[in-house]
């Protein structure tokens, strides 16, 4: 009965939403504010990848808020899954789990530096090629994930993650505030922009995206380490209740 009501409700909703969505023309030129961005990005800012220019410069304040949300998610996850010290031995607590096979371990060791290199390449070239801080950071986090699932004794030091994260966040906000000293707006470019399609171009865009890359990598590595180090059984303290 409940299922029938839900399907009816979704049918009515879906009909009207589809009516609205299918009246949007597909594949035709609908640009208005994007024209300004497509013009300004290579001309004034000298950033080849317009998506990077939009994310970091034209809507940089938005990205600062987003990085804050990610930081809050990582912190909230840590506090939700917080456990007392006596259970936490510092090792990766998959003790009961069987050891990963030798092939996975050797492959993980072999691939880990290459994955780090790919991640660093992606976020350093964020203003020239597809990719950027978010993608590069996530790639680096998957590299650490490979080590976390391969080795039982591998553990990430959360204090150093917090330091990397803090330094990257301060760099992001500090570059924005430095712009105010030079008489610009918050997060407006104040450095020389260089030549289009060269590595040192785009002023502050490249520096901010490198900072975002470090911040995202450390936050997601922290999230993965926290999630993977949960003990499987139900807490003893709750069985008494």
């Amino acid at each position: 009965m409940k299922r029938i009501i839900t399907i009816l409700l979704l049918g009515v909703t879906g009909y009207f939403v589809a009516d609205a969505v299918f009246s949007i023309p597909f594949g035709v030129d609908k640009l208005n504010i994007a024209k300004e961005y497509l013009l300004n990005s290579p001309e004034e800012l000298k950033v080849a990848n317009t998506v990077t220019a939009v994310v970091v410069n034209f809507r940089g304040f938005d990205t600062l808020g987003e990085v804050t949300v990610l930081f809050l998610a990582a912190t909230g996850l840590g506090s939700i899954l917080f456990r007392r010290r006596k259970y936490h031995t510092g090792l990766n607590p998959q003790r009961e789990a069987p050891q990963a096979s030798r092939i996975v371990q050797v492959g993980g060791k072999l691939l880990f530096p290459l994955i780090l290199l790919l991640g660093a390449y992606v976020f350093i070239h964020g203003h020239l090629t597809p990719g950027g801080g978010f993608q590069g950071g996530v790639i680096i986090a998957t590299g650490y994930l490979l080590l976390l699932v391969s080795f039982r004794k591998f553990a990430v030091k959360h204090s150093s993650l917090t330091w990397v994260e803090a330094v990257a966040g301060v760099t992001f906000a500090g570059i924005g505030l430095t712009g105010l000293v030079f008489g610009k707006d918050f997060l407006e470019n104040f450095l020389p922009t260089g030549v289009l399609n060269s590595l040192l171009s785009g002023g502050i865009v490249g520096i901010i995206y490198v900072a975002v890359g470090f911040k995202v990598a450390s936050e997601l590595t922290g999230i993965l380490d926290t999630m993977l180090s949960i003990k499987v059984e139900v807490d003893e303290e709750n069985e008494e209740n």
Partner: peptide
């Protein structure tokens, strides 16, 4: 480029929401 930039941020936020 604007929808791409918005979706880029939306995917990353979605991961944080799912994790919490």
């Amino acid at each position: 480029p604007i929808p791409q930039a918005l979706v880029l941020t939306a995917i990353v936020i979605g991961l944080g929401v799912t994790a919490v």
